Amino acid sequence: MGNNSQLQNIHVLIVDDEKMIQRLVYDVLAQLGFRQITVASSGRQAIHLVATKPFDFIITDWRMQDLDGIDLVEFVRKSPESKCPHVPVILLTGNTEAHYVVRARDAGVNEYIIKPFAAEQLVRRIRAVIEKPRPFVVTKTYRGPDRRHQDLPPPDGKERRKQRHRPEPSES
């Protein structure tokens, strides 16, 4: 991941109502070389912060007392008050069922981490949003990162986007 001087200029917002998770995430970021780290203890506090100044990425919990992480992501993506509608968002959650993953994806979450998680998992997701950012998509019904992590054809083999010519692999 970039050198420490680059990371020092990246402003991160951590949003979690659990002090232990706040500390874990903060410590991981600090060890990586991040220096501009803001911590919010609630979704409402986070909304106030993103309406006040831009962030380079957000790490948020899903379930919080006052306002959940999905509400925060929807504010960030859709509200005219958001100073950072295109910011990458990493969501921390205990929700493992597929419909939760789909809901988070549809809200515009970039990365999804299941609790409990290891620091290495968080580091991998941070690397992904910094080193391999996905294109941002804005349509009438969706604002967020391109939902496809890789440029692969869909599982059913029917490409609905314009097909780009790809040379066939050569035989050796």
Rank of each mutant, 00 (worst) to 15 (best):
V25A: 05
D27V: 00
V28Y: 01
V28D: 05
V28R: 06
V28W: 02
L29Q: 01
L29H: 07
A30K: 13
Q31I: 07
Q31R: 14
L32R: 13
G33Y: 04
F34D: 02
R35W: 05
Q36A: 12
Q36Y: 05
V39Q: 08
A40M: 13
A40S: 15
S41F: 05
S41D: 12
S42Y: 03
S42K: 04
R44D: 12
Q45T: 10
Q45I: 08
A46L: 02
L49A: 14
V50G: 05
P54N: 07
F55C: 04
F55G: 00
D56E: 09
F57H: 04
I59F: 04
D61I: 02
D61G: 05
W62E: 01
W62Q: 10
W62H: 11
R63C: 06
R63D: 10
L67D: 07
D68T: 04
D68M: 01
G69W: 01
G69Q: 02
V73T: 15
F75Y: 15
F75N: 12
F75R: 02
V76M: 03
R77A: 11
R77M: 14
K78V: 03
S79A: 13
E81Q: 15
S82V: 12
K83E: 12
K83Y: 08
C84Y: 06
I90F: 06
I90T: 09
L91Q: 06
L91C: 01
L92I: 10
T93H: 06
G94V: 10
A98W: 07
A98L: 14
A98E: 13
A98F: 07
A98D: 10
Y100W: 15
V101D: 01
R103I: 03
R103D: 09
G108L: 05
N110Q: 02
Y112F: 15
Y112P: 04
I113H: 10
I113A: 11
K115P: 01
P116A: 00
P116Y: 08
F117P: 07
A118M: 14
A119M: 08
A119K: 11
A119Y: 02
Q121S: 12
Q121R: 11
Q121K: 12
L122Y: 04
L122V: 06
L122H: 06
V123L: 10
R124L: 12
R124C: 08
R124E: 13
R124S: 11
I126S: 04
I126P: 08
R127G: 12
R127I: 13
A128Q: 12
I130F: 05
K132D: 09
P133H: 09
P133L: 07
P133Y: 09
P135Q: 12
F136P: 02
T139I: 08
K140A: 13
Y142N: 02
G144R: 02
P145N: 12
H149N: 14
H149C: 11
Q150R: 14
Q150H: 14
D151Q: 14
